[in-house]
Design a protein around this nucleic acid. Structure first.
Lengths: 211, 211, 211, 211
DNA sequence: TATGAATGAGACTTCATTCAT
DNA sequence: AATGAATGAAGTCTCATTCAT
């Protein structure tokens, strides 16, 4: 959706523009975000933004795509283990995922907000893709669990998914909020707290869903 | 927070203004909502809105308060039983709560969105009140459960609360979405579906939290 | 096509706005005309123009209508004699028509330019009405002439009309250009020139069209 | 008025640029014409246009000159007979002139519009030249006629010229409009219509102007 | 108090022109 | 000489808020 001009830009400038955009959207929401500020923060002229994107909305939409693709790359690298247990998933990767949050708090928060519908009115389409990808992954986890006999099979997958999502989203947000408090620079103390926190979540998840 | 002028209005006009405001905010979000449209839909002049409220933000903030107070009245009437079990709470009141959703879908949706942070940037203060009230109630339910021995006591109240909220919010939204699909006019079939759906949720909640 | 707000304005302001608009459009053409200038010259705020009209184009379109209607009123008063000869038409009314040009050079010029297609890309619709009205009148004159036997009947009305229009438009423009030179303040000398000029035109018209 | 760079271009590129420019100007008018579109349609880069011309206005002005010169060449070839009667002029060359319109409708239309003042605000200078050339030719025709005694001598040359121009412009436009309707691909039927049309015009012209 | 016209700051967007490669 | 990205002045339009009646 960006124009050809944007794609031809060198990677550094592209990244500067996208990060400036996401930062602005995340800080002020779509309506109150100003193209001028984004341009300024990206170090380009206001007019240039319009060489890259048709309008503000296109810029936003591509911001979503860009963040999504960023994670695709990173996460692919991080989770090569595919046949994983739902619970392991959280317990194992927690440090890695925390590293990600620490490295890219902006992108993580933005993605979370997009995924949870904060920009729903704009990003219906962009969202749906993001949604589907996440859901598919989670449904596979659930399916795995049922096959192994670690997840109860008296309930519909769809319902288990809702349960799973409800719990994990809530806890993830809480973690993000806490991490922001210590500016993504956790002490060992913080780490232990996080892990205990996740363990509690997993315990609730597990006990709720187990056969 | 409305001006004196607003309080002196007759109840009908007050209600028309508040409903028009909530409808507009809910439909278009704060930024894109137009005072002129609100005024028109409420059947008053644009200028009048400024006789009632300092500015758009005040109008929004009071919309939150107004919706909240509306439910306070209604819910008080509906749940006189205070010493209730967490699980009963959902199973018992489901039909009543559905009635409420049917009668006031706009207010219910608006409140849900406010509560889940859709208007976070505006309503920090208004939110916190709403939050606290809900939380207090839920914490009491949890506390009750612990005392009776129906809820595990190896986990912090705060964590149980997150779990509880995560699950119930997710399921509530799902119910609302489905209800919207059949325009809040459920057949008996729908009702049975709802109840089975809630039962599943309660089962997950219960199994997750139980001792 | 103006908004309700415009129609409710007092006549003086309406007129100020329309004249300022026509003046600007006539002086700079549609594209280079600035709403801000129009507003300023009309003594209103830029934003007010947008209370009156949806956008610049609507303002232009209504300018055409307004000028047209202005002449409808004036001309109706001036030519009550309906069953007139084509040639008399010019010879008789010349002084009156000159008065009109003197009184309203702006409107006359604007109308002429609209009629002759200067703004064709914008005003297709608005134009067509203006066109039809003028044409109908002229066709009736031609028809009259044929019936009386003063106009040759070996040619199609449509062709005679083209001839008539071609000649009169050209001469009218010439007269307007000359009148502008002496700033619409003709001396007697000027008047005599004008009349001789028109007589020449009529002579050519007559001789060309007569049986 | 183009820069040296332009003159050095090979003829093909020069022609592509000029035709692209004229097409754009004719389609959208000066203000709404975009340099970028012209460049694209000519198959050159936007920046190149500025290597050829100082600015948009220069490009336009030269477009006028270029079209004019094009006709100079062509018409010279077509009308070697200089001492022609005014009326023959039309009757004789009609097929040839129609061929020209068919071959170069764009240039013909553009020239007509320039000549009749559509771009008056820009092309005062360019216009005056075009004007003078046409006028001189026509004045010579009139003078010829007077000398031969085929044109009345009770009227000023200037007035006869106006008459002549008024009529011929009007009829020419009509012909062009009709020709456009059948996409410049006339059937024999069309041709006969055209000729009869021109004959009518000549008849009117002749009768009007004759002694 | 109610009304609705008036205001103007402020945002988006366009595009001729410049400039670095 | 050719290219096309960069620039920013300038113009349109929106709408919260004010104000006169």
């Amino acid at each position: 959706m960006p124009k050809r001009t944007f794609n031809r830009l060198d990677d550094d400038k592209k990244e500067r523009v996208m990060r400036a955009a996401i930062e602005e959207f995340q800080a002020h929401g779509f309506e109150k975000s100003k193209i001028e500020v984004i341009a300024h923060n990206a170090g380009v002229a206001k007019g240039s933004i319009y060489q890259y994107f048709d309008d503000k909305k296109e810029l936003f939409l591509y911001s979503v795509t860009w963040a999504l693709e960023y994670f695709m790359k990173v996460i692919d690298r991080q989770t090569p283990l595919k046949d994983m247990d739902v619970y392991e998933y959280f317990l194992s990767g927690s440090r890695e995922r925390f590293e990600l949050l620490k490295r890219e708090p902006l992108l993580v928060e933005f993605s979370m907000d997009v995924a949870s519908g904060k920009y729903a009115s704009l990003a219906k389409e962009a969202n749906s893709e993001l949604y589907r990808i996440g859901e598919e992954y989670e449904l596979r986890l659930i399916d795995n669990g049922k096959k192994r006999g670690t997840i109860r099979d008296d309930l519909d997958d769809k319902i288990l998914l809702l349960f799973f999502q409800g719990v994990t989203e809530k806890f993830t947000r809480e973690i993000m909020a806490r991490a922001k408090d210590f500016k993504y620079e956790p002490t060992e103390e913080h780490f232990r707290e996080m892990e205990s926190f996740i363990k509690s979540m997993v315990s609730l998840l597990k006990q709720g869903m187990e056969r």
